[in-house]
């Protein structure tokens, strides 16, 4: 049980903000827009409009989205009565930044991905940490992994290896944080995210020729499905995997997603269904007026919404038919 009274203010502010999330109608209008510029105009009528004053061209949509994600994270950080909870969600940006900085520093990769200033550790500080190899302020699993990586990369640098190991460390860090809160909603959410990640990795490896040795490296801890379950299933068919999970909470999404996968060889449908599954979990729990559920739900709903906008904008800019774009779109939260 948390100290709940502090949540009353935050949750009802979120209730109002939820009404400003993009609804089906706005998304349909973006989809039906004749071109990218028109879709961008629809976006200007929403909350995103405030970031668009000096950004007129549709192809600069990423700048708008990154401003919005920054705004939303700093808003929720300021509202959350237990700011530590936010670390669980900021960490993916920290890990993204660590990956980029680490590869820059040790592998001399130029022109890499941009840093995202949404994490719990400011970028300047993070740059210093990586530069000085002084990892003690990072979450323990990540610090340990970086020390291990220092030894390995000195001999044989491998960017893919860096990614995989840091992803794993991230989930370990998330599990540690979730365990500290002793709040079922948060633990369950962390477990679902780990399960979904493992299911996706498992199927991606299945789709890859001769990928099975990689499986041990990509599986993350913390899910409800044991890691041994995945290694056991490594030699079996995708259908066997799906039927083993038929009566698990993931049965429905796997059935539909794998059907599409065997027909087309693409995992995009399953990715969408997995995201929808997490959204559904958040939607089921958001009604608590005195808990962190609504805040976390809104945060992840915003990320989901940004994903939707990105898919539409990329599609529109590349002149893809709206029907094709639509198939990839996630469900909305409200």
């Amino acid at each position: 049980m948390m100290d709940n009274t502090n949540y009353a203010y935050a949750v009802s502010r979120i209730r109002v903000l939820e009404t400003r999330l993009l609804g089906r109608d706005k998304i349909d209008r973006m989809l039906e827009a004749a071109n990218a510029q028109d879709a961008f105009k629809v976006l200007a009528e929403t909350e995103y409009g405030t970031h668009m004053e000096d950004i007129g061209e549709a192809y600069k949509y990423e700048a708008v989205l990154s401003k919005e994600i920054k705004r939303v994270y700093s808003l929720i950080k300021s509202l959350m009565p237990q700011p530590k909870i936010m670390d669980m969600f900021c960490i993916k940006y920290d890990v993204h930044n660590i990956k980029v900085l680490y590869k820059n520093r040790f592998l001399n990769i130029k022109g890499s991905l941009p840093l995202i200033d949404v994490g719990s550790i400011p970028i300047d500080r993070l740059t210093e940490i990586i530069k000085e190899k002084n990892y003690k302020d990072l979450p323990l699993p990540i610090a340990q992994t970086l020390r291990k990586l220092d030894e390995i990369t000195a001999i044989r640098p491998d960017p893919q290896h860096i990614n995989l190991m840091l992803d794993r460390a991230m989930f370990e860090a998330i599990n540690d944080m979730a365990a500290r809160f002793r709040y079922p909603f948060i633990k369950e959410l962390a477990a679902i995210q780990a399960d979904v990640t493992n299911i996706m990795s498992f199927l991606r490896i299945k789709a890859m020729e001769g990928g099975s040795p990689l499986l041990d490296k990509v599986l993350v801890t913390g899910g409800k499905l044991e890691m041994s379950f995945f290694t056991e299933m490594a030699d079996q068919s995708v259908d066997a995997f799906s039927s083993r999970l038929e009566y698990s909470p993931y049965g429905q999404l796997l059935k539909e997603g794998i059907e599409h996968f065997t027909k087309t060889g693409k995992l995009s449908r399953l990715e969408k269904l997995a995201d929808d599954y997490i959204m559904e979990y958040l939607r089921e729990h958001k009604s608590n007026p005195l808990g962190p559920e609504a805040l976390i739900g809104y945060l992840l709903a915003k990320e989901n919404e940004i994903k939707i906008i990105r898919i539409i904008m990329v599609g529109k800019i590349n002149g893809i038919k709206s029907q094709v774009i639509k198939e990839r779109l996630r469900d909305v939260y409200v």
């Binding site: 009274t5 502090n6 009353a8 203010y9 935050a10 949750v11 009802s12 502010r13 979120i14 209730r15 109002v16 903000l17 007026p289 005195l290």
Partner: peptide, 15 residues
């Protein structure tokens, strides 16, 4: 009243 009041303040902040 204070619990409900905090909640009301949240709504009024935005609306």
């Amino acid at each position: 009243v204070s619990t409900a009041g905090q909640s009301a303040a949240g709504v009024v902040t935005e609306d």
